[in-house]
Every structure is written in structure tokens, then in C-alpha cells.
Amino acid sequence: MICVEGIDGSGKSTQLLLLERWLRARGYPVHFTEWNSSRLVRRSMQRGKKKNLLTPTTFSLLHAVDFADRLTYQILPPLKAGMIVLADRYVYTAFARDVARGVHPDWVRSVYSPALRPDLTLYFRVPIDISLERLLSGRAKLKYHEAGMDVGLSADPVESFRMFQSRVLEIYDQLTTEFGMRPIDATAEIPNQQRVVRTMVQEILRDYDLNRANGKNGAASQPR
């Protein structure tokens, strides 16, 4: 179980895609899963976002429903089958963003306690200005929740993004130590970052390779 974390515009999805390509080319069975992607809560999420009905707590719980559903269908079965699961964002996203929105840190940890601890969490660390630059060059506008507009820090989306994502960044830094996330300098050139990523992944795949050679399932995570 390998996951990537980082604020919007940190480049984590790009890095995960490159990692997936590499793993597949080397013949590993890989399954990819993404934060907030299950069909189950899509309608509630759209409705809540469009009509601005979401509170920090319902925002958090809807993502938890999505996660629980993906844990059942997207994460546990491939792990049990000995596959490598790649997750674009994991529970740490909730621990950082939801707490930045105001929910209690212990509460959100309880909500996500059915989750497995990943074998490797890569944290793509980037200063706010660089992530902003990346996001704004790709599309004209920042998304409402991405900019934390719901928190009401500023009426200006860019300023709101800066303030909200700074909070998120600060919490991510604390989580890095708490959960042993591996920080990666997300300001570096893309291929250089990918080299670091692949080295880290290779390390944790040593046991997995050994087990596969012995005909056992891969190094599936144990519940914590």
C-alpha cells in the first residue's frame, strides 16, 4: 500500500502516475485508487458543494463514506490478492484538511480508524506560491473548496487559498512526524523527484519481491 499526500498543486498525482507506469512496466500487479472517487456519495457531494450546504463535519463525513466504500471495494481486495495499491491521497488528507476546517483532530482520527496504515506514504512538500502558480497556469480559476472559501478566511479566492492551504501545510508538517510520512521536495524537477520516489518504493518492495519469489502474496498491510 503506497500513497501520496500533499496540497493541491504539489504535483503528487503526476508523480504517482509516473510511478504506476514504472511499476507496471516491471510487471507488478498494480491497482490505483483516488480520493473522493466512489460513485456512492458523488451526488451528495455535488449537491452539497453546489448549494453550499456542506459544513466542516458533513464535508469530513462524506469523504469518510467515500473512503470506507473504497476501502471495501478498491483497497482491501487488491491488497489481499497480493497487488500493489497506489492511493492518490489517503486519510492524512482528511487529518490535514478537515482539521484546517475546524473539526477536532481526535474525532477525525476516530472516524478513519478502520483504515489500514500504508506501507509507504510520500509527502510532496511545496510552498504555497509554487502550488498556486501551478494551479493558476493550468486553469483560470481556483475551485471553491480547494481555496477553502467555505471557511470564510477571505472573499478573494487567491488570498483564501493562501491562508487555508498554509494551515493545511502546517498540519501536514506535523503529520509527517506523527505518521512517518516520507517528505519529498516537490519544487525539484519532475524526473529528479521521480528518481527519489522510485528509490523509496524499491526499498519497500524488497520484502514484497521476496514473498512473491516464494509464491506468497505480497506484503499486504496488517490492520493497525
Binding site: L40, V41, S44, T58, L61, A64, V65, A68, T72, V111
Partner: peptide, 8 residues
């Protein structure tokens, strides 16, 4: 999953 839906 159901519990979380009810909680939401």
C-alpha cells in the same frame, strides 16, 4: 460505510 452515511 452505512454508519458513516448515517453519521453524515
Amino acid at each position: 460505510t452505512f454508519s458513516l452515511l448515517y453519521a453524515a
